[in-house]
């Protein structure tokens, strides 16, 4: 199936006169494409274009195709692209279980059925019985697992990682990273990762694009 996966077709992002990024690539299901470079080169801007909320002041052209569908002009909530940031961004007013329910796809109907899904998801990430907990009381690693699971429950077709492991300490970073990549492979998710950490790129194992200075890709 050649059209499965995430395709960035002649994508070019500009900030006024400067071309920040120019990229033409395809990420196959289960593969990870790493984009590396120092902060400020517009790595995250590329992700915001893929997810559909390019900040004001930037111009972009080129198509984003996901599993054969052109999603370039869809609103964020219709793209089926999951994203993880360097902060867990668990909604602080919801319990852990409510956070997961917010993510759980709406096609799964019925209170009891949904609750079963949540319980199973919690078990899967070794957080049985955590449904009613305040997310703020969780450890860094636990939060990262909940954020990952919340994203997976929404059934995304692609995964974006925006410096997703930068805030975790070295030991935890390796564990969480392996977990994320394991799920991405298991679910055949094409994954686009931006990072400034070589270890992230090495662990991903896939293709790696280095962005150098401002305005000079590759």
């Amino acid at each position: 199936m050649g059209d499965q996966g995430l395709t960035l077709e002649n994508v070019e992002i500009r900030n006024g006169q400067n071309t920040l990024i120019s990229i033409n690539t395809h990420i196959a299901p289960g593969e990870v494409l790493t984009i590396m470079g120092p902060s400020g080169v517009g790595k995250s801007t590329l992700l915001s274009y893929v997810i559909g909320n390019l900040p004001p002041g930037f111009d972009a052209k080129g198509r984003i195709v996901l599993d054969g569908h052109d999603i370039t002009h869809l609103p964020t909530n219709k793209r089926r692209v999951g994203i993880l940031f360097q902060d867990d961004l668990l909604f602080p007013h919801m319990s852990v279980g409510e956070n997961l329910s917010f993510g759980l796809h709406a096609d799964i109907k019925g209170r009891a059925v949904r609750r079963m899904h949540i319980e199973a998801a919690l078990t899967e990430i070794n957080l049985e019985g955590f449904a009613n907990r305040d997310p703020e009381t969780l450890s860094g690693g636990q939060k990262a697992r909940v954020a990952l699971m919340r994203m997976l429950l929404s059934n995304p077709c692609a995964l974006l990682l925006d410096e997703a492991f930068a805030r975790l300490d070295t030991k935890l970073r390796g564990q969480v990273r392996n977990l994320v990549f394991e799920y991405a492979r298991k679910r055949d998710l094409p994954t686009l990762m931006v990072t400034h950490d070589q270890a992230d790129a090495d662990a991903a194992g896939g293709e790696c694009i280095h962005l150098l200075e401002f305005g000079k890709p590759n």
Partner: peptide, 29 residues
């Protein structure tokens, strides 16, 4: 307010109104 919460919620499939009522306003209560 950190709009990455909104991005996260949208990526989870929530429309703009749901983001406003379920995420942003409760957090800004």
């Amino acid at each position: 307010w950190d709009t990455r919460y909104a991005t996260t919620a949208s990526a989870l499939g929530a429309g703009p109104d749901r983001v406003l009522w379920r995420i942003r306003l409760p957090m800004l209560l």
